[in-house]
Every structure is written in structure tokens, then in C-alpha cells.
């Protein structure tokens, strides 16, 4: 196996308070190989976006990274000065924001925003930057790129703006792209196009991708591997196929059943997991999922289960499903 491009070890994020810090992310560890697509799933508030934001050090106080290491191609990102970090953002790690309606500067043209980004990171002249910008707009499938170059964001539709956001994230040719819910804010009809575009660009450029989403359908289409977050902890990682067909953690299985799917009679069914995820600072002792879990025993209530490696996949559960899948 090749050396991972991104290695995250024991990443912890806290919400700083005067009395005590509340944990938001609790010792999250994962790798992304060069060119790999890692899906990060979980409910709202599980810490998905926080993980992406923490990697590029864009947490807004009172949120703060409290521990762990982040290594990108051998460089420790967690040790960089703010100035060095600004050279990493955009250039080595691109970030695709969730909401294209608010992510673009309303008073600057698309071209200006693209060329500023490229000229910051790449040794290109003004005219080269312009050419490249137009080529990126073409590659992201925008019609009439020269017109889009001169346009202001409000002249474009939501889908077009998200294409621009993708072009902005990729234009300095990063090794890793963090896509935070890239399709959530879009119309369903546009979502499929956007996923196809991400897929195509990923194959074209060979960048690794960290795809943050709550949508297992998106994961199934896009990701090579999946990491499931619950209440700030990583509870399961596996290859996408294995995770979808044989989830080990009861929460993952519950998530899968909570995705609408037709039953034998063709009627769409959803089975929600009873209860709700504990909020920040409200996690119970032991496994954070135990109050909602049908398999919970005493040990689940007392000691948090470690993320146990089981043949290329891992689950943080004392009583995983599909035991036969384990050695």
C-alpha cells in the first residue's frame, strides 16, 4: 500500500468555554491515500464539517483544535504558522463550500475571484491566469465561459455558481480536495450533474477527495472508502461496498435503514433510529450510541469501545453486526 497522502491521528476539537472545554471531535483518526475518495458520513452535528475545517485550520473561535496530528504528504499541518498555512490552503488542499449562494463574493466578478486565487499560488501572469480561468470554467461545464468570467455571481444560477465554487477549489491544482456537502444546497435535478462533474474532475486530475455528506446515496456513488462519525467520534471505517452490504456498527446499519428504499412491494420505506444524537457536551458515558442501541450491554454504558481493526475495516463496537465477517 502506498503511503497515505493525508494522515489524521487523534484529531480533537473543543468548544472553549470559561468553565470547561466541551469536546466536539474526540480523537478522530483516518488516512486518505493519493487519489482516493474518502466519504465522511454522519448526522448534522456529528462533527463532519468540523473535521474538514480543522484540517485546514479554519475553525472559528470558540472552536479550537485541542490535540492530534495532521500530516499531509509528510508535512505536519498542525505545526504550521498561520502564514505557512495560508500557502497550503488552496494550493495543496482545496475546499468546496456547501452553499454556492453565499460562498462567492457578491461584488467581484467570477474571473477576478479565480485569477486572484491562481495568481496567489501559481507562477502565472495575468493573461495566463485569465486563460486558465476560462479553461477551468469550460472544464466545469459552464456554457459560454468567457461571459461567466466577466459575470458577477448574481447573474448565475445556483448550479452554475456551484460549478464556479468547484473551479475555485481546484484551480490551484491541490492534491486533496475537501468537499463539504457539495450537493446539499442544490436542487435534486442539479445534484446528479454536480456529482458527475466531481467524479469526472477527480478522475481527470487525480486529486484525492474528502467528501463530507449525510447522504449515503452520494457516498455509494462516489467514495472508495467511508468513515462514519457519531457524536464527534469515528465509529466505523470500511470500503464503501463492505460498509453498505455488511455494516458492523449498529449505528451504521441504522443509518442505512433510515435511507428511503423500496421494500418488496415497491413501497418506499424509511426506518428511523429511535432517539436522537447527543448534543455537544451531552455525550453519555461509555459508547455514545448506547441509549439508542438495541444491542447495548453493561460494558457499552461504562467504557467507550475502541476502534477495533478487523481485516481492513474497523468498528468501535463491542457487539458488532455481521460477526461472521470478522476473523
Amino acid at each position: 500500500m502506498t503511503a497515505p497522502l493525508l494522515e489524521v491521528r487523534d484529531l480533537s476539537v473543543v468548544l472553549s468555554r470559561t468553565e470547561r472545554d466541551l469536546p466536539v471531535l474526540d480523537k478522530v483518526s483516518f488516512d486518505i491515500a493519493p487519489g482516493e475518495v474518502l466519504g465522511i458520513v454522519g448526522e448534522s452535528g456529528a462533527g463532519k464539517s468540523m473535521t474538514g475545517v480543522a484540517i485546514v485550520d479554519l475553525l472559528v473561535p470558540p472552536l479550537r483544535r485541542s490535540g492530534g496530528t495532521i500530516t499531509l504528504a509528510g508535512d505536519r499541518l498542525d505545526r504550521l504558522t498561520p502564514r505557512q498555512m495560508r500557502r497550503v490552503r488552496g494550493k495543496r488542499v482545496g475546499f468546496i463550500f456547501q452553499d454556492p449562494m453565499t460562498s462567492l463574493n457578491p461584488v467581484l466578478t467570477i474571473g477576478r475571484q479565480l485569477t486572484d486565487t491562481m495568481r496567489r499560488h501559481l507562477p502565472v501572469s495575468r493573461s495566463e491566469a485569465r486563460e486558465r480561468a476560462i479553461s477551468w470554467l469550460t472544464r466545469t461545464g459552464l456554457p459560454n465561459p468567457a461571459r461567466v468570467f466577466a459575470a458577477a455571481p448574481h447573474e448565475l444560477s445556483g448550479g452554475q455558481r456551484q460549478r464556479v465554487v468547484i473551479a475555485l477549489a481546484l484551480c490551484a491544482e491541490p492534491d486533496l480536495v475537501i468537499a463539504d456537502e457539495p450537493t446539499t444546497a442544490l436542487d435534486v435535478s442539479v445534484q446528479a450533474h454536480m456529482l458527475q462533474l466531481l467524479r469526472d474532475l477527480h478522475e481527470e486530475t487525480g486529486t484525492a477527495m474528502m467528501l463530507i455528506t449525510h447522504d449515503l446515496g452520494v457516498i455509494a456513488k462516489m467514495a472508495d472508502r467511508v468513515a462514519v462519525l457519531y457524536a464527534g467520534r469515528l465509529i466505523e471505517t470500511a470500503k464503501t461496498q463492505a460498509l453498505v452490504t455488511e455494516p458492523l456498527h449498529p449505528y451504521t446499519a441504522g443509518l442505512m435503514q433510515a435511507t428511503p428504499a423500496p421494500d418488496e412491494t415497491g413501497v418506499m420505506r424509511v426506518r428511523a433510529i429511535p432517539g436522537s444524537m447527543p448534543g455537544i457536551g451531552a455525550a453519555p458515558s461509555g459508547c455514545a450510541f448506547h441509549p439508542r442501541c438495541g444491542r447495548a450491554q453493561d460494558i457499552c454504558r461504562q467504557t467507550p469501545p475502541p476502534l477495533a481493526d478487523a481485516g481492513g475495516r474497523a468498528a468501535a463496537c463491542y457487539f458488532p453486526l455481521h460477526r461472521e465477517a470478522q476473523p
Binding site: 488552496g90 453565499t102 475571484q113
Partner: peptide, 17 residues
């Protein structure tokens, strides 16, 4: 505080810009 400023930062633009 706005998203587009966060996005500008996420693209590594200098604080001055």
C-alpha cells in the same frame, strides 16, 4: 463572518487581499 470571506480564506488568499 460571511461565507464568501471564509471561502476566500480557504483558498489561501492573503489577509491583506
Amino acid at each position: 463572518q460571511s461565507e464568501h470571506i471564509r471561502f476566500a480564506r480557504a483558498r489561501g488568499l492573503s489577509e491583506r487581499t
